[in-house]
Amino acid sequence: MKKKIVFCICLLLVTTLLLAFLQALTMPKYMSSAKEGALIAEYYRETPDHDVLFVGDCEVYEGITPPTLWEEYGITSYIRGSAQQLTWQSYYLLEETLKYETPKVVVFNVLALKYGEPQDEAYNRMTLDGMKLSATKLRAIKASMTEEESFASYLFPLLRFHSRWKELGQEDLTYLFHRDTVSHNGYLMQTEVRGGKAEILPSPLADYTLPAASMEYLDKMRELCAEKGIAFVLMKAPTNDWKYHWFDEWDAQIVAYAAEHGLRYYNFIPLADEIGIDWSTDTYDAGVHLNVFGAEKLTSYLGEILVEECGLESRKTDAALSEIWQKKLDAYYAERNEGKDY
């Protein structure tokens, strides 16, 4: 009898391990395509010591380059951003990050405030699957799920990705137990140049009021930062595309919000010329996102603001830190010079 019980326990253990293996095998690796799916998990490999934390969607992980911020201003930073990262996801990522570290400044990109409801399952997965299991993650899942999604599939991603057994490839085996680092402190580099300017005007909206759900999470971020004594700054990255048009009516609401709560808000769209953005060379997808050349210009401009208006100081005198960041800069320039695109 005892033997049988031991055997059954071993069997259950083997089954659990096998299921864990199958889960690791079938989950997308995001190493050669859709690399933005790998960004969130990369944070846990980083030493949590940053002056500035950026949260937001593609406009931050394509628009701000932490290595430039270090190189020019000696400011350490990290981007916790992912594709179409919704405001509540930014909040929960901020909440999670603040468990590891307390930066001096948190910068939030406001574009996602226009979304008041869960949007897309694929983007949800890219943001949430990378998070470590915690109460924060569970709350983030609950807030983000579209109707077709199930909570259980976030806890056991095999339930979502099981059908990938048909499309398993070399990448799934190579990255079964580890991942390469694809970003530079959360910045996903794009070196291609594909300029362009919006030819089509955006369609007017029936209602320009920013959704209450996203504004509620903006409040939560502000309160969380206030509680921890962190300066909370709002920004809107420059764009030249009609699809992601930032309406003046939305901007007015953010301006009013910032004024009401004494926050700094920087809309970089009208400042694009002053920053030096050239839409024929500084974008890789015809004006939707900045490429590395545009991102460096924006970072350089923002760095000055962070130093002059937020009072951040250079930490280049810290030899150990400088050594770490020099390695990051080397990797950054190696990729930049290689001119890889994703």
């Binding site: 059954c8 089954t15 199930s150 599939s153 095999l158 099981h162 059908s163």
Partner: peptide, 26 residues
């Protein structure tokens, strides 16, 4: 034969979870 049954059940669970037509996409 509980031991054999346990093994069969585990195998069946794995097969259903991996090859079942369920979840998003189905």
């Amino acid at each position: 034969r509980p031991v054999l049954m346990c093994a069969a059940l585990c195998a069946l669970v794995i097969v259903i979870l991996l090859f079942g037509a369920y979840g998003i996409g189905y």
